[in-house]
Simulated scan of single mutants.
Amino acid sequence: MARENYTIVTEFILLGFSVGPKFQGILFVIFLIIYMNILMGNGLIIAITKTDPTLQTPMYFFLGNFSFLEICYTSVILPKLLTNFWSHNKSISFLDCAIQLCFFLILGSTECFLLAVMAYDRYVAICKPLNYPLIMNHKVCIQLVVVSWISGIPISIVLTYQVFSLSFCGSNKLNHVFCDIPPLLKLACGDTIMTEFSVYILAVLFGMASFLLILWSYIKIITLILKLPSATGRHKAFSTCFSHFIVVSLFYGSIAIMYLSPQTSHSEETDKVLSLFYTILTPMFNPIIYSLRNKDVIAALRKILLK
């Protein structure tokens, strides 16, 4: 009898930010500018790493792939968000929501692994400089990038299947800006404890593997830097990985606050802002972070802009 009163969910309503209609247009303009900056900034990074002869090294090869990933990552979220602001139609079909979540997880896991690969590259460059060309040859770099892109596909499909195999038979109002696991689980009917447990265990283990590799790499790097006799040598060694360290801190820091802290410690509106931080703001800052302290990137940018 109780089930007869339920309505089977065929689409979700993305509630987004709790603002009035007047602010919808303002938010549309703001996020459109952000999206264009992401496309142009990361597009420039891709262009210079592919065309400038001085940037044909493993570090910039990974940076070009990372910039391409950032464009894909934000393109999963922002076009739908902009459509919601523009048309005021915030609905998303069940299938589209599943596809968005699946690609979001795939690209998010790829970012975790690619950041780990970039950290390992810096470790080899600083701690084993004589063997660097041999260890990080072009074939190895391509293999590392391919593994980063495909390794997250199976687990992302499994996670998406687990979430959408649940019954959604009550409210279809998804209090978020895109289809993510925590807000979807709140709408699921019945007992979701086992699903939540398996989802979070897989996600934590998957993200932890890449984070531990990054942590190990930086422990080795910092240990070596502290042993260098000259301050100039320490500064030069640290400057080669400073940009990557900032990106890692922004990405993992916001994810840790979002997913690892108790849900009672922050509101749903805070969750929305934090989710946008690592999905949108980090990709926007990526070209700035990697160019401000990098003379080679600045010189290459000047060349391409003058042309």
Rank of each mutant, 00 (worst) to 15 (best):
G43T: 06
K227V: 06
F103N: 01
L250H: 14
L101Q: 05
I30G: 04
K272S: 07
I280P: 01
L185E: 10
I201G: 01
H138I: 11
D271V: 03
S151L: 14
L166P: 06
L27H: 10
Q100R: 01
F251Y: 14
F103K: 03
F23D: 15
N65K: 14
K303C: 10
L301W: 03
L130R: 14
F245N: 11
I153D: 00
R302Q: 11
F238T: 06
I225T: 08
I193T: 14
I201R: 00
T54H: 10
A116G: 09
V145A: 05
F31P: 00
W149C: 08
G190W: 13
F238L: 10
S261F: 10
T192F: 03
F94L: 07
L44P: 00
K307C: 14
W86D: 00
Y200T: 11
I280E: 02
S151C: 12
L69W: 08
P183S: 15
S93V: 12
S275P: 00
G207Q: 09
L55N: 06
F211R: 02
G233I: 11
A188P: 09
Y252S: 07
Q143I: 15
S291C: 15
C72P: 00
T192K: 11
C189S: 13
V147N: 03
L301C: 11
P262K: 03
L78G: 01
Q143H: 04
H266K: 07
N175D: 15
N131Y: 10
C72W: 04
S171I: 12
F206D: 05
K186M: 10
F238W: 09
A98E: 06
L95C: 00
L185Q: 12
F178G: 01
L32C: 06
T7S: 09
L205C: 12
M136H: 02
L260H: 14
F62C: 09
I201A: 08
F23P: 09
N131E: 09
F103W: 12
L78S: 01
T282Q: 08
G253P: 13
I99H: 00
V297A: 05
I289H: 12
Y278N: 02
D296G: 07
S243L: 03
S291E: 13
L250E: 05
A299D: 13
F168E: 02
I222L: 08
L215H: 13
L159D: 02
L292P: 08
I38V: 14
K128T: 05
Y120N: 04
T195V: 15
T49F: 06
I30C: 04
I153C: 02
T54G: 04
S239R: 04
V199C: 12
F94Y: 15
F285G: 10
N37Y: 09
G233W: 06
R122C: 10
C241I: 05
P287E: 09
I257L: 15
V117K: 03
S109L: 07
S217P: 15
E268W: 11
R3H: 13
L226A: 11
A256D: 13
A203H: 09
P229S: 05
F251D: 01
M258S: 12
V146G: 03
F103G: 00
S91M: 04
S239W: 07
S198K: 07
I126G: 04
V145W: 11
V247T: 13
I30E: 04
A98D: 01
